[in-house]
């Protein structure tokens, strides 16, 4: 366990791919606060969030072969995996029977994130060291921008649903998303390019 502390996220994932449970434990130690916070934000229930978090780590273990070791972006893969899983649980709880049966095929298609082949790797340690700058940039968004991002990212609403909910035209929603992500992109460019 102690030796894993020195490893990069990518190296830890490689050991997880070798079915090293201590590496999975190390990954849990590093990522569980971030992933739990994200999941809890989506499902808004601590006990359910803990259950989903444990499911996410089981998925990581079972579907490690789906992780792309060439691009090696552990941070984004885990965050998007946790988000997809949490939103799926939320939708299934809110609308039982509306989603297709949850099976292996479904999980591969809708829960496991498919990252771009050209994505640059992000490292949790590096990201957290720049957290204050990132937080400031996010806090500078207008309330409307924050709300649209909130509804899309944390509530899993589609553009049309957001337009209905806010009682604004769909093109306005699209435009807000374009502007918001465009502005954030400019601020975060050094980290994400």
């Amino acid at each position: 366990m102690a030796e894993n502390i020195k490893l990069t996220d990518g190296e830890v994932m490689l050991k997880v791919a070798g079915y090293d449970s201590q590496a999975l434990e190390e990954l849990y130690e590093r990522y569980s606060p971030l992933l739990f916070t994200l999941i809890n934000r989506i499902v808004e229930n601590k006990e359910l969030a803990e259950e989903v978090l444990s499911d996410v780590f089981v998925i990581i273990w079972q579907k490690i072969e789906k992780f792309d070791f060439k691009t090696n972006n552990v941070y984004t893969w885990l965050v998007l995996l946790a988000r997809n899983k949490a939103l799926d649980v939320l939708k299934r709880n809110n609308n039982p029977g509306m989603l297709p049966e949850y099976n292996d095929e479904y999980e591969n298609e809708f829960i496991i994130p498919k990252l771009s082949d050209s994505i640059i790797p992000l490292n949790l340690e590096k990201i957290l060291s720049k957290n204050s700058g990132i937080t400031n940039a996010l806090n500078k968004l207008t309330d409307a921008q924050k709300y649209v991002i909130e509804l899309a990212f944390y509530h899993g609403l589609k553009e049309d649903d957001i337009a209905k909910k806010l009682n604004i035209p769909a093109p306005t929603v699209k435009s807000k998303i374009q502007i918001t992500l465009g502005n954030l992109y400019k601020k975060f460019a050094p980290e994400i390019e």
Partner: peptide, 25 residues
């Protein structure tokens, strides 16, 4: 696509981190 995927993955950094219960592990 990769850049925007990374960008979106940074959105949760704005949240106050909480630790899950000890029993989750």
């Amino acid at each position: 696509l990769g850049q925007y995927q990374n960008l979106v993955a940074m959105l949760p950094l704005n949240l106050s981190f909480e630790t899950p219960g000890l029993e989750v592990k």
